[in-house]
Design a protein around this nucleic acid. Structure first.
Lengths: 195, 195
DNA sequence: TGCGTTCTATGACGGCTGTCATGATACTGG
DNA sequence: CCAGTATCATGACAGCCGTCATAGAACGCA
């Protein structure tokens, strides 16, 4: 997964994101990140003079933009572009990932929010930016599918909220049930929003 | 809030739940819980011989049953009992709590899931039990409102997922926007499920 | 009164945390 | 070749963590 091309710096950011989404922010130590990335330990103070806070924030930002690009790709790949189909696509992808990894890891942004939203303002801001970066392409896609512009952003937020919540419940239950049943009910409702 | 009547044991469980939902599980130390509860430090090994794991699990279970009772009360208090009205009631209550507390604390169960779902099986099980304890009365209420029994549980899960996710986003954004817009869109859709 | 159980108090232990000081090495440009 | 910067390596620091051993206090019961 981690190409040789990537420098130690980017590898550390990716490893941080991976470990955070699995164990949470507080439980993820910088030594763990270094080891997981196969990076030299001395690099942490060289590349991240801001310490763990900087590392975590960059991980959050990285996941934010990476996932935003993924959303765009989902939209483009839809053969029958409707809001419900898009939502089903997202829940399906997550369900597949959860089962493939044995439910070992949820959303990095959710973990960062739960763990550090109160204590570290910069991390909370980064998480909010990530959510905003996902809402925008989602709302644009909905508008492109014929959803009235006044409702596009609300519906995008609804999709995101439901996805995040279902992901959380699925992880607790070690069962994709929450994802599939949320999609089964919400998808037709979303399609009803396009006149 | 904490009545004098409650023994130190229950006060510690409640304090644990409160601190966990604010700072996460890993960031909440047993010393913090003891201090927050105004309990004697020596009591922790007396009442919770299972250590921090037991304390966390009991906090999760406590929030689970407490919130389940709250859901039942919400249902009974509705003047015009429809699925949408119930969902709006829940999001409104959470939005009010978030603004009142300065967005300082989300859902205890979500925090426990994100932090310990992978590392501590018993906590994951407790979290799953809590979600189940919320789904059941919710589904029953929906059935009572005329929702077909085949869809009640799915819709209950959808409501819960959306609520949890919107709560998360709201905390990251320090804005109840996610809660209100999710309710604005989902509530009418839910009402459409009763024939 | 005296015994036994329940509860509280205190201090210590090893282990892990994030951070930093210090120094060695690699590499690049003149 | 040499100088200077970028990168890496190592060890130490203070602080917090969960846990436990030990002992004292409070209380009910006979």
């Amino acid at each position: 997964m981690a190409k040789r091309e990537r420098g130690p710096r980017e590898r550390m950011v990716m490893s941080a994101a991976e470990l955070i989404r699995r164990d949470g922010v507080s439980a993820t130590g910088v030594r763990d990140v270094v080891e997981h990335a196969g990076a030299p330990r001395g690099s942490v103070q060289h590349y991240f003079p801001g310490g763990k806070v900087q590392l975590v924030n960059e991980a959050v930002a990285w996941v934010g933009s990476y996932t935003a690009r993924r959303i765009v790709r989902y939209v483009e790949a839809l053969e029958r572009p409707t809001p419900g189909a898009l939502f089903t696509e997202m829940t399906d992808k997550w369900a597949a990932e959860l089962t493939a990894t044995g439910f070992a890891g949820g959303c990095t942004i959710a973990a960062a929010t739960v763990d550090w939203a109160d204590s570290t303002e910069s991390t909370r801001t980064a998480a909010a930016a990530a959510f905003a970066a996902w809402t925008r392409p989602l709302a644009d896609a909905l508008t492109g599918m014929g959803v009235p512009e006044t409702r596009s952003e609300d519906l995008a937020t609804l999709m995101l909220s439901t996805l995040e919540g279902a992901l959380l419940i699925a992880r607790a239950e070690r069962d994709v049930r929450a994802l599939t049943s949320a999609a089964r009910e919400l998808a037709p409702m979303l399609d009803g929003a396009v006149p």
